[in-house]
Amino acid sequence: MTAHRLEARGLTLAYEARTVAEGLDVSIPDGRVTVIVGPNACGKSTLLRALGRLLKPVRGAVLLDGQELARIPTKRIAQRLGLLPQSPTAPEGISVADLVSRGRQPHQSWWQQWSPEDEAAVAEALERTSTAELAERSMDELSGGQRQRAWIAMTLAQGTDILLLDEPTTYLDIAHQVEVLDLVRRLNVERGRTVVAVLHDLNQAARYADHLVAMRDGRVVAEGAPGEVVTAELVREVFGLDSVVVPDPVTGTPLVVPGAPWAARADAADAVDAVDAVNAAEA
Rank of each mutant, 00 (worst) to 15 (best):
S243P: 07
A8M: 03
W111F: 11
L142Y: 03
E179Y: 12
H107P: 03
M215V: 10
Q177H: 08
L51I: 06
A266D: 15
A281Q: 07
I162P: 00
G31H: 09
L83S: 01
L47D: 05
I36M: 05
P29F: 06
N203D: 11
I174A: 12
D217W: 07
L234K: 06
R236S: 10
V245W: 13
L255G: 00
D242W: 12
E190C: 04
G227E: 15
H107L: 04
A125C: 13
V184H: 05
Q158L: 07
V244T: 11
R104F: 08
I162S: 01
V213L: 09
S87F: 12
R207V: 05
C42D: 07
A225K: 12
V35T: 08
T12L: 01
A123D: 15
L51M: 13
L181I: 00
R149W: 09
M1L: 06
S95F: 03
A153M: 04
D276W: 01
S138T: 10
D98K: 15
Q86N: 10
A206C: 12
T231M: 07
E133N: 13
V35H: 03
S45Q: 10
T129D: 05
V37H: 01
M1F: 02
I162H: 03
Q112C: 13
Q158C: 04
R59G: 12
Y15P: 05
A209N: 06
V244A: 10
E228Q: 14
D161Y: 00
A263L: 14
A266M: 11
V196A: 03
T251V: 02
Q67V: 15
G224Q: 11
A50E: 11
D118W: 08
M154I: 00
V198A: 09
A264Y: 10
D276A: 14
A8T: 00
